[in-house]
Each structure stands twice: as C-alpha cells, then as structure tokens.
C-alpha cells in the first residue's frame, strides 16, 4: 500500500507544478480551460439534435443516451488529461523521457506524472460529470446504483489510461510515431459515445475485450438503467481489474525497448 500512496503522492506533486507551469500564461490558460468545455457542449448538442429530428437510438431514450454520451466524454476527457501520446512519443524519440525515469517511483507513474496530458480537458470532464449527475437526478436513480456506477467509471478511466499508455509505447516501438496511438484513442472516442451493441457483435467483442470502453462506461450505463442485472457489476469490475493488471504488465515489458537518444 505504501508504494501506491507514494506513487500517488508523486503524481499530485507533479500535477501541482504542471498546472503552475501551464498557467504561466494566465489568460491563455483560462481560455484553454473554458474552450475544453466545448467537448461537453458538442456532445450535448449532438444528442439533442438527433432526438429533435428523430426518436433516436432504439431502446435508448434521450436522457439515457445523454448520460451514456456524457459519461463517455467524461472518461475520455480524463484519459486525455492523463496522457498526451504525441508528447510521450516525441520525448521518447529524442531521449527527453530520461529525466522523468530517474525518479524513485514506478516507471508508469514517472511517465504519467512527468509528461502530463491536456490539462485543460479537466474542465470538459467536470462539465460532463455535471450532466451525468443531472441525468441521474432527473431519472431519480438512487445512491445504491449511482455510487457503483461512478466507481465503475473511475475504474474504467484507470483501465483505459493504462491501456492507452501501453498502446502509446507500442506506437513508439514499432512506428516511432504517436499517430497510431492517437487513432486508437479517436476510435474509442467516436464509438463509445453511443451504445456499442449497434455496431454488431464483432465490434462489441472488440470494444469489450480489446479496447474495453464497453466495461468502462457502456455496461455500467446498462446496469444503471436496468438493461443488465446488478450482479453484472462484479463482472464489470473484474474485467476492468484484469485490464488494469495486464496493461501494467505489458507497459513494464515494453518500456525495456526504450532507446533514449544520443550518447
């Protein structure tokens, strides 16, 4: 437990200085944070327009789909907040990851802490969380279901962050570019805003077992609306735990291939 709290402590210290560094240009920092709210606005507007012109996705009413889309936006904004694949790969290519790897913490912690993601997207994540809370309140869903729901979303965020970090390192090793990693992110983002069941069984399996956005927010949403039984919570948590452990192991194996730069 001591190791995890130490890693968390280091992450928070790095966040403090990352925000300080970022807000050096104060006005622009504030503008970026405000602009990141756009992701929530676009999500909200998109769902609202679809339900204005049609009856929407079969089996999902307006509020349900709004919750799913904004949950997806919240989780993916948080993932982007933690990881910037371009920055990580660029630093790996020219050896600028070295100063972060000499800190007395786990390698994954060092990379996530030392190379922050798009800090402004925290605003997008928080505004999406606001809409999620609003929908839960409107639908009258009690704490017995909503608390596990939020915990599954947070666990989903952790799992996706670690998976995308592993994918970013794969992208560096095989292609020396972040483009592949970013494309995988975008795939998750574009598919995850809607019920993955509509993409057919093949994609549903892919988005459950390989890129588990299903377990991160789709199945939790189905549990919340009674489309899946409450006992599925255990399955969801177990699946996310497996995703976390395996992506951690994959990352630690892959980081051995880091070649730094110069020398």
């Amino acid at each position: 437990m001591g190791r995890y709290t130490e890693n968390a402590r280091y992450f928070l210290i790095c966040q403090k200085y990352a925000w300080k560094d970022w807000f050096v240009y104060r006005l622009q920092g504030a503008i970026w944070v405000a602009l990141s709210l756009m992701s929530t606005v676009v999500t909200y507007a998109g769902i609202t327009i679809i339900y204005n012109v049609s009856s929407g996705i079969p089996g999902w009413n307006y509020l349900q789909l709004l919750l799913l889309s904004t949950s997806s936006n919240m989780v993916m904004s948080l993932v982007w907040f933690f990881i910037n694949p371009w920055s990580i790969v660029n630093k790996m290519r020219i050896g600028k990851l070295d100063p972060y790897l000499i800190r007395p913490f786990g390698k994954m912690t060092c990379v996530l802490s030392g190379v922050p993601g798009a800090l402004s997207l925290i605003a997008g994540a928080l505004s999406s969380a606001g809409i999620v809370a609003y929908v839960i309140f409107r639908l009258g869903i009690g704490p017995l279901l909503s608390i596990p729901y939020v915990l599954m979303l947070l666990m989903g965020t952790a799992a996706l962050t670690m998976i995308f970090l592993a994918v970013t390192v794969i992208s560096y090793i095989f292609m020396r570019s972040a483009q592949f990693s970013r494309s995988v992110f975008n795939l998750g983002e574009s598919a995850g805003a809607y019920p993955i069941a509509i993409y057919g069984i093949g994609f549903q399996v892919f988005f459950s077992l390989l890129l588990p956005i299903g377990f991160a927010y789709y199945y939790p949403s189905e549990i919340l609306f009674g489309k899946l039984g409450v006992s599925f919570i255990l399955v969801d948590v177990l699946a996310l735990a497996i995703a976390i452990v395996s992506s951690y192991a994959i990352f630690n194996r892959l980081i051995k291939e880091y070649e730094s730069g110069g020398g």
Partner: peptide, 13 residues
C-alpha cells in the same frame, strides 16, 4: 502558451 494541443483539437472538434 506552453502547448496548443487542447486548443487545436477543440477547434477541430
């Protein structure tokens, strides 16, 4: 600013 990443992707969105 220190990075345009967030700004860039949001404008593109």
């Amino acid at each position: 600013t220190t990075t345009i990443d967030g700004f860039s992707s949001l404008v593109m969105t």
